[in-house]
Nucleic acid binder design. Structure first.
Lengths: 145, 145
DNA sequence: CCATTAGGTAAAGTGGCTTGACAATAAATG
DNA sequence: CATTTATTGTCAAGCCACTTTACCTAATGG
């Protein structure tokens, strides 16, 4: 027996990629043409505002060097600044610039737009169920070895 | 007002990544320790069996050179062979080796295992609804400009 | 036939990441 | 205190999955 109809992996991947590309598209259309796809990770919920690079890297599951590389690009593009941290002079505090706050808004609006579209397509009740189930699965552990 | 609770993007990403890492883990545990994460794309539904490199690259949305690079690794590792194509001597036909077929089975079993786990967690009826809704969203177009 | 197109691949370059090393500061310890 | 140890950010080198460019070969169509 071949795979049944498309498996859960593919089913999850497709709409997830749709979210990604829609966010990026709206960014490019709204004054953030230099916003790279990789930057989306940094701006993922709950965003970098006020965080320390090290903490943010841990939250995103990447090395601090990798994050630092992305932060360099974002700072050069004027989306954020790495300020000295008030409580620890080794550390830094990430502060979004007005442009960075604008990008956050564009992203949030893009997601809201997609959620509206999907709510229409599935119906509000079913979409709420979808959200709830995905949240439950997000807390679900993987099967053990 | 930060983002509401986690947005649909994050909700989709988490379980999708869980599927990926579970497939990879089972592969590594079952005789495919050299199976790279990147190879999962090639083995994604409906798999490379019998396909031509060009056609497969188009299906996966990558350049034929990028796919060829992955196929080189997979062939060197003994998961598949690039045979001459019977109908077109410019072309090739991808044929899974026994080892490649074994990897397909490991992947399929891993997904089935996860689906079982998630079915238990959500209940069979709700999980079926989840599948159905994800399928519907997969066919849904993005909102226009 | 010859010109054009399609299929595959080799070579070089790119971007996002890793690992390793390190200076500066903070925290823990004697 | 002084000294060790851990933490933070960063530079540097390298890796890997790509892309772009360039070709060669074989099929297709006049």
């Amino acid at each position: 027996m071949p795979f049944g109809p498309p498996m859960i992996g593919a089913l999850l991947r497709v709409p997830w990629e749709a979210v990604q590309s829609h966010m990026l598209r709206r960014l490019h259309e709204n004054g953030c043409a230099d916003f790279d796809a990789a930057y989306l990770r940094v701006f993922g919920y709950p965003g970098p505002q006020g965080a320390r690079p090290s903490e943010l890297a841990a939250r995103l599951g990447m090395s601090k060097q990798a994050l630092n590389y992305l932060l360099g690009g974002l700072e050069r593009a004027g989306y954020l600044e790495r300020q000295p941290h008030p409580d620890d002079s080794r550390s830094r505090r990430i502060a979004l610039t007005p442009r960075g706050l604008g990008a956050v808004k564009v992203i949030r609006d893009a997601v809201a737009e997609l959620e509206t579209s999907w709510t229409q397509r599935l119906g509000p009740k079913r979409f709420a169920q979808l959200r709830k189930m995905l949240q439950e699965l997000g807390r679900s552990p993987l099967p053990p070895t």
